[in-house]
Design a protein around this nucleic acid. Structure first.
Lengths: 198, 198
DNA sequence: TTGCGATACTAAACACCGTTCGTTATGCAA
DNA sequence: TTGCATAACGAACGGTGTTTAGTATCGCAA
């Protein structure tokens, strides 16, 4: 093979590599992933991957972007699944938890806090913002409809952080001797909407 | 040196190693830590560390335990800093965030969700429970005093998960274009106590 | 048809990692 | 003085990400 690849073909190969990596990460976990194992599955050598990604970090970044977009797709689908705003918020919460449960590696990739690179590539920044925005929209709608009151952006972050907090505490094995997760989730969401003050 | 170490001395050496590792983790980050660098700072060889820890995993586990205990100490100190229950809850929140900000590596260690070992050593389980319990006590007091209503354990988890969620979202760089962190924190806590329903 | 240039991929090496193993050197007991 | 137990070492193993020089193959021009 010596004929140069078009930009499109390069993108295709990048995507193929990313898919293989995602498969391994889903099967074996994040820490088990290596350039050699990815290349092996492609019948290649680790060095070949450097034609398509400048580093492992850049490959992980691409995977993060894809994960964010898959996530946002799910949330948006849940958003569009019903017109009733209370049902909608419930559906979005369900979709959120379903994503975290069925694609834990992708979820961890999205919200990993050990990333060395302080400078995210612009596309990742955009993907992050999309995830964030998707989780804000429905709250804005609820505030507009008069179902909730307060700054919708702040409110959305409260819902998001609570759900995320529960998910990662569970992933860290910190909720093993706590009340059932479903109960915690339901009650936490209820508290934010209604409060706990006596 | 060929004379056998007493159990106490072994514990001392374990603690010395742990301290060196904690220093490096605080300075260089979690991923930069290596047995060779730790041993180097002690004037030793990496292999020597295996007299005191069966694996790097076990060393990390000891560091996790120490981090949990330092954390619980801080929270308990905040708890005892005032008798007014509202002030107390505020002080605990402050202490929580201060710990996460000033000792991010320790915080990440405590709540890392990429741990391979599903089986935590009993001492780590105890340390985890202590952290969890410490964050529950003051809520129980507030419910007992009639300041809050509901299941105190569930309520405590709601506060905890929300705070933790905010912290790790910020660590993941996901709050860079969001409202100021202090505002998010204050409003989220306020929402859980008072609710957002119109 | 032949030969050239471009290039996708390889093979080998580098420095690092966690871990294992056989060896060394020390200090007490006999 | 001899012998033993053992704390720490040094070298190695297989793994990692990454770099480098080389190979083999293709399209195209002569």
């Amino acid at each position: 093979m010596a004929l140069p690849l078009t930009d499109e073909q390069v993108l295709d190969v990048r995507e193929r590599i990313r898919r293989v990596a995602e498969g391994q990460i889903a099967r074996e976990g994040i820490s088990a992933i290596s350039l050699r194992s990815i290349a092996g599955e492609l019948g290649w050598t680790a060095a070949s991957l450097y034609r398509y990604f400048a580093s492992k970090q850049e490959l992980l970044s691409a995977m993060r972007i894809a994960a964010h977009n898959r996530f946002a797709d799910r949330i948006e689908a849940a958003h569009d699944s019903t017109a009733n705003l209370w049902d909608r918020s419930r559906a979005i919460g369900d979709a959120y938890l379903d994503f975290a449960e069925t694609q834990p590696a992708a979820y961890q990739l999205m919200f990993a806090y050990d990333q060395e690179d302080k400078k995210d590539p612009p596309e990742l920044q955009r993907a992050r913002k999309r995830s964030s925005l998707t989780l804000t929209t429905y709250v804005v709608e609820m505030v507009d409809a008069g179902l909730l009151q307060g700054d919708p952006v702040v409110l959305a972050h409260a819902f998001w952080a609570s759900l995320h907090g529960l998910v990662v505490l569970r992933m860290a094995g910190q909720l093993d001797h706590s009340p059932p997760f479903d109960l915690l989730r339901r009650e936490t969401m209820r508290l934010i909407t209604r409060g706990a003050r006596a």
